[in-house]
């Protein structure tokens, strides 16, 4: 088992390295010279060639690409991502301020999505074609197709502007987190509740469900006792994928609610063409996606012996 985990971790590490090369190459191949861009920020459009050359030398931009890559990666591993052109602060400082904000957004939203999708999915399966099921199916279809910025807008209009119950901006006390959490949980909750519903339906036609009925359980009894444990793997796999996509959604959610997290920062630095920050944030994203995947894989291996066997433990 531990060998299996190590193997998966090794693959994940390789993926991160491959993606870091790609990220580095992408930015290195960017049209326009980073040094010229920085000089422009410092001295306006008429920056002298001298200044550009000095910045290039300072940043080591004249070294061969592999050297620059290794230096960049080495610094990044030690927590030094360079200095943001956008804010002028070291990126490690920016990250220290912003990662907790995004983490809080993702965990709150993820928790809501987790609970909501299980509840709604089970309710739908119990209703099984009844009115509850139909209503829930429609809600999840609409929820899965509504752009998250529109969800945010509707929530703000309803709860902040009209009812005046909640603040329309984040970062001002616990109440201000409710709308961002709700916004980021709508899409994953919609998709996950469908997954719960569909897999429960499938499980109900299996022999163990029949056994449950034979033991005298009611339909809800069979769903909760016999069917629910069997959907753990597809549920967790989809949850992992959706959790990773919540990071993508955080760019929109944080921008709308003025939260100072990583997602909003990414959009800011793209607008500002701050390549140094872009590189670092992309690396952070890749690590996040790979780690999320790794955790889901390991948890699935822990709970389902068949996956362990298939993977050759």
């Amino acid at each position: 088992m531990s060998i299996l985990v190590l193997k998966r971790a090794a693959i994940a590490a390789l993926l991160v390295i491959a993606a870091s090369v790609l990220t580095f190459a992408l930015v290195a191949a960017a049209p326009g010279n980073v040094a010229a861009l920085i000089a422009e920020r410092m001295a306006g459009p008429n920056a002298s060639a001298e200044l550009i050359a000095r910045i290039a030398a300072d940043l080591g931009l004249n070294d061969p690409l592999p050297v620059r890559y290794l230096r960049w990666l080495g610094d990044a591993v030690r927590g030094d991502f360079g200095i943001s052109l956008r804010s002028g602060k070291p990126l490690s400082v920016e990250f220290a301020e912003r990662v907790p904000v995004t983490a809080l957004l993702l965990f709150g939203g993820g928790l809501i999505a987790f609970a909501l999708s299980l509840g709604l999915g089970i309710a739908g399966a119990i209703s099984n074609g009844g009115p509850v099921d139909n209503v829930l199916r429609t809600i999840s279809l609409v929820g899965a197709s509504t752009p998250n910025f529109f969800v945010a807008a509707v929530l703000v209009i309803t709860f902040a502007v009209t009812l005046n119950w909640l603040p329309s901006f984040g970062g001002s006390g616990p109440l201000s987190w409710i709308l961002p959490w709700a916004t980021s949980s709508v899409l994953p909750a919609s998709i996950l509740s469908r997954v719960v519903r569909v897999n429960l339906q499938d499980a109900m036609s299996r022999p163990y469900a029949t056994t449950g009925f034979a033991k005298g359980l009611t339909r809800s009894g069979v769903i909760l006792q016999e069917a629910l444990p069997t959907i753990a793997v597809p549920f967790l796999t989809t949850f992992g994928a959706q959790f990773a996509l919540m990071m993508v959604a955080s760019m929109v959610v944080e921008t709308v609610f003025a939260l100072r997290g990583i997602g909003a920062f990414f959009i800011e630095v793209i607008r500002f063409r701050d390549f140094i920050s872009m590189q670092a944030i992309l690396l952070l994203f890749v690590v996040f996606f790979v780690v999320t995947n790794l955790v889901v894989d390991i948890v699935c291996m822990l709970i389902d012996p068949r996956i362990r066997k298939a993977a050759g433990a």
Binding site: L15, L26, A29, A244, I270, R273, M278
Partner: peptide
């Protein structure tokens, strides 16, 4: 392996 929107955003960042 990467979400499409992240790829698109990275490319927009480079191209402006």
């Amino acid at each position: 392996a990467l979400p499409s929107l992240v790829i698109a955003l990275a490319l927009i960042g480079i191209m402006g």
